[in-house]
């Protein structure tokens, strides 16, 4: 029975692992931290899995656990961002219609997002993942209206970081 559970979990996690990778990408600064957080999220998902009843999609459920782990449970303190050069390059695959200027701009944006605090990153993450404000508000435990207000403030903040 427990083997069955493990098998089902591992295969579903393998299918949905990009969710975790994406969160690690926002919340960590190097490969070691990325792998460390990936492992912690996997452990937390596995611990919570017996209670997962399939009422929601595995991915929806995993989003929540993964975000909560990154924001709250993960212990390694985030190092001061200013001293760390976040290597966005490793995520980039050269595209055919190579636009140097746009790519530079996107690199700056990634850097700016890394300077946000944990909660702001969570909002940005869900925005990038096309989550609606109802889900964003529910996941974080704030009101929908305030989630919108906060999102607008983050957009302004990002602009200020990029064009000081």
């Amino acid at each position: 029975m427990s083997n069955e559970l493990e098998k089902s979990f591992v295969s579903q996690l393998k299918e949905n692992q990009n969710i975790i990778h994406k969160i690690c990408r926002l919340y960590t600064h190097d490969d070691d931290e990325h792998n460390d957080l990936f492992q912690e999220i996997t452990i937390q998902l596995w611990k919570a899995f017996p209670k997962f009843r399939g009422e929601s999609k595995f991915s929806t459920w995993a989003y929540r656990v993964a975000l909560n782990t990154a924001i709250t449970l993960y212990r390694k303190s985030t190092k001061s961002i200013s001293t760390i050069e976040f290597e966005t390059g490793r995520h980039f695959i050269p595209q055919e219609e190579y636009n140097y200027e746009e790519e530079e701009h996107i690199k700056l944006l990634y850097k700016a997002v890394h300077q946000l605090n944990d909660i702001e990153k969570a909002l940005v993450f869900m925005y990038l993942e096309d989550k609606d404000y109802t889900e964003i508000a529910e996941t974080l435990g704030i009101s929908e209206v305030n989630a919108r207000v906060k999102m607008n403030r983050i957009k302004t903040k990002l602009k200020q970081i990029i064009n000081p």
């Binding site: 990778h21 695959i93 746009e102 944006l109 990038l128 990002l158």
Partner: peptide, 19 residues
Amino acid sequence: EELDLLKKDWKKNQNFREV
């Protein structure tokens, strides 16, 4: 918008090392 530009790239760049 800045974030929408980022979103475009975010969706394109999802090539992570497969665990």
